[in-house]
C-alpha cells in the first residue's frame, strides 16, 4: 500500500498537462519503478500522482518518411528491446535498454521515465547521447525540442518544468546511418545493478581514418556527458589500437567522476579509460572495420 493522497488518470497528453498545471504538487507516474519506490520510502512529495501508465499517445516506435526514428517516451524497455525498427537502425539503444534492472523492471519501466528521473546513472542515456537524440517536450505553453545532451542540468535535475511532459525521443537518420556503435555498462553485478560507469560510442570510419566519433559516459560527471575533447582529438586519426588508447586517455579530460563510497574517483577514472578503449574498439568493429 502506498501513501497516495490524490490520483488522477490522464487519457491524453493534453489532459495530463492540464492536470499538472492544476496541481503544483502533482507528479507523473508511468512505469512506476521510481515513483512507487519513493512513495514506499515515505517521500510525501510524490503523494499526488497523475497516471500516464496507459497513455497510448506516448507509446510506439516509428520510422518517419525521412528515416528518422521516433521512440515514444512511454515505451517500456522490453518493447524498445524487441522493436524491429530499433534493431535495424539504432541497436545500441536496445543494447543499453537490456542492461536496465532485470526483466520484470524492463517489462514496465519506461525509457522516458529513465531520462526524467534525472539519475546520472540512467542506463539508456549514454546511447541516446551518442545518437544526438532530440527530445520532444510538450507543456502548457506549447511544444519544444531539446537535445538529450542538454536535458540534464545536474544530478537529479532536468530541464522539464512542472507543466511539461516528455513525449518522444527522435533520432535523426544522419546520426545513425553509417555509424558503428557499442554500449557497455560496468557494474558490480551483471543484473539488477546501478552502473559504476556507463560508456557508449558511435563511430564513422572512412578509409581507415576516424571521420566522426561520439563518446558518452554516465556516472562520470555530474550529468551524462559527451567526451568532446576526445571526440575532436580523434577526427582524422588512423583507426588503430594505438590511437584508440590515446583517445581513451583524452576522454579523461572531459570527465570528473565522484569519489564516493560506491567507488573511488581513481577507480572510476581507470574504468572510464578502460571502457573508452574497449567500447570504441567494439564500435569500430561494429562499423565493419578491421583493426
Amino acid at each position: 500500500m502506498f501513501d497516495i493522497k490524490s490520483y488522477e488518470k490522464a487519457d491524453t497528453v493534453k489532459q495530463a498537462i492540464e492536470l499538472l498545471s492544476a496541481n503544483p504538487d502533482a507528479k507523473l507516474i508511468a512505469g512506476g519503478t521510481d515513483v512507487l519506490i519513493r512513495l514506499r520510502e515515505g517521500h510525501e512529495e510524490f503523494s499526488s500522482i497523475i497516471d500516464i501508465h496507459h497513455l497510448e499517445e506516448i507509446k510506439g516506435v516509428e520510422m518517419q518518411d525521412n528515416m528518422d526514428v521516433r521512440i515514444g517516451a512511454g515505451m517500456c524497455f522490453t518493447d524498445v528491446i524487441e522493436s524491429e525498427i530499433i534493431d535495424q537502425t539504432i541497436p545500441i539503444v536496445a543494447e543499453a535498454s537490456g542492461t536496465v534492472g532485470g526483466p520484470q523492471v524492463r517489462n514496465v519501466a519506461t525509457i522516458g521515465g529513465n531520462l526524467c528521473n534525472g539519475a546520472i546513472s540512467a542506463d539508456s542515456v549514454a546511447s541516446l547521447c551518442v545518437l544526438d537524440a532530440t527530445l520532444e517536450i510538450e507543456g502548457i505553453d506549447g511544444a519544444r525540442e531539446v537535445p538529450v545532451t542538454e536535458f540534464y542540468l545536474g544530478p537529479g535535475k532536468i530541464v522539464l518544468t512542472h507543466t511539461e511532459i516528455l513525449k518522444s525521443i527522435y533520432i535523426k537518420a544522419e546520426n545513425y546511418m553509417g555509424f558503428g556503435t557499442h554500449y557497455y555498462k560496468y557494474a558490480m553485478r551483471n543484473a539488477m545493478d546501478i552502473a559504476t560507469i556507463g560508456c557508449a560510442a558511435a563511430i564513422k570510419v572512412d578509409e581507415g581514418k576516424v571521420e566522426t566519433l561520439k563518446l558518452a559516459f554516465t556516472v562520470a560527471a555530474p550529468k551524462p556527458t559527451r567526451a568532446t575533447t576526445a571526440e575532436q582529438f580523434s577526427v582524422g586519426l588512423d583507426a588503430t589500437s594505438e590511437n584508440i588508447e590515446k583517445i581513451a586517455k583524452k576522454a579523461l579530460e572531459d570527465l570528473n567522476p565522484r569519489d564516493s563510497w560506491r567507488a573511488s574517483k581513481d577507480f572510476r577514472l581507470h574504468i572510464i579509460e578502460t571502457l573508452a578503449k574497449r567500447v570504441i574498439t567494439a564500435a569500430i568493429i561494429d562499423a565493419g572495420v578491421q583493426l
Binding site: 502506498f2 490520483y7 488518470k9 507516474i29 512506476g32 519503478t33 512507487l36 519506490i37 497516471d51 501508465h53 496507459h54 522490453t78 526483466p103 520484470q104 523492471v105 517489462n107 514496465v108
Partner: peptide, 13 residues
C-alpha cells in the same frame, strides 16, 4: 503473460 513485480504495480493498472 508478461512477468511483472506486483509490488511495484498499482492495482488499478
Amino acid at each position: 503473460d508478461i512477468p511483472m513485480d506486483t509490488c511495484m504495480y498499482l492495482a488499478v493498472w
